[in-house]
Computed example of a mutant assay.
Amino acid sequence: MNTLFNMKKTIIACLVVLGAGSVQASASEQEPGTCSLDFAMTKILHAATPEFVESIRQRSGATVVRVERPGQVYTMEYNADRLRVIVNKNNIIQGYMCG
C-alpha cells in the first residue's frame, strides 16, 4: 500500500515538472481584468492557501477570485474577470474555470 502511495506521488511530481515548461505569462497579452487559464496546467492538486490562490489570480489576469467548496451555493452569473477555483473537502484544488 505504501509503495502505491509513493508511486502516485512520483507520477504527480513528474506531471508537474513536465507541465512546468508549458506555463506562459499570457496575462499581459490579454485584456486587463479578463481571466485566462493558460497558467493553470500544473497547479491542480495544490492546497488552496490564501497566498497560492492570490498568486494564481494574478497569473490568470482575473480581478476577482472565488474558491468554490463542496456543498456551497454560488451564483451562476458569468463574470469574464473572475477566476473560479474548485476545491475538495480537504481544500485541495481540483480545477479552475473562468467566469
Results as ranks from 00 to 15, higher is better:
residue 64 V to K: 12
residue 32 P to R: 04
residue 18 L to A: 07
residue 68 E to F: 01
residue 20 A to H: 04
residue 15 L to T: 06
residue 76 M to H: 05
residue 37 L to N: 03
residue 77 E to S: 13
residue 79 N to R: 14
residue 40 A to M: 05
residue 18 L to C: 08
residue 98 C to I: 09
residue 11 I to L: 15
residue 39 F to P: 00
residue 52 F to Y: 09
residue 88 N to H: 00
residue 83 L to T: 00
residue 3 T to Q: 10
residue 85 V to K: 00
residue 40 A to C: 09
residue 71 G to T: 04
residue 75 T to Q: 12
residue 5 F to N: 02
residue 74 Y to G: 04
residue 68 E to V: 02
residue 91 N to C: 05
residue 60 S to E: 02
residue 60 S to C: 13
residue 17 V to K: 10
residue 14 C to K: 13
residue 76 M to Y: 04
residue 79 N to Y: 09
residue 28 S to N: 11
residue 23 V to H: 03
residue 37 L to Q: 02
residue 53 V to T: 12
residue 36 S to F: 12
residue 11 I to M: 09
residue 77 E to Y: 13
residue 48 A to W: 13
residue 32 P to Y: 06
residue 24 Q to C: 10
residue 20 A to T: 12
residue 4 L to Y: 06
residue 86 I to A: 03
residue 3 T to S: 10
residue 85 V to I: 01
residue 76 M to T: 05
residue 54 E to A: 15
residue 54 E to Y: 10
residue 67 V to C: 03
residue 1 M to K: 10
residue 30 Q to G: 13
residue 73 V to G: 01
residue 7 M to H: 08
residue 80 A to D: 08
residue 92 I to R: 01
residue 49 T to F: 07
residue 21 G to V: 12
residue 96 Y to V: 01
residue 23 V to C: 05
residue 7 M to L: 12
residue 95 G to L: 09
residue 52 F to T: 00
residue 18 L to F: 14
residue 53 V to P: 05
residue 55 S to W: 05
residue 22 S to P: 00
residue 17 V to E: 00
residue 35 C to K: 03
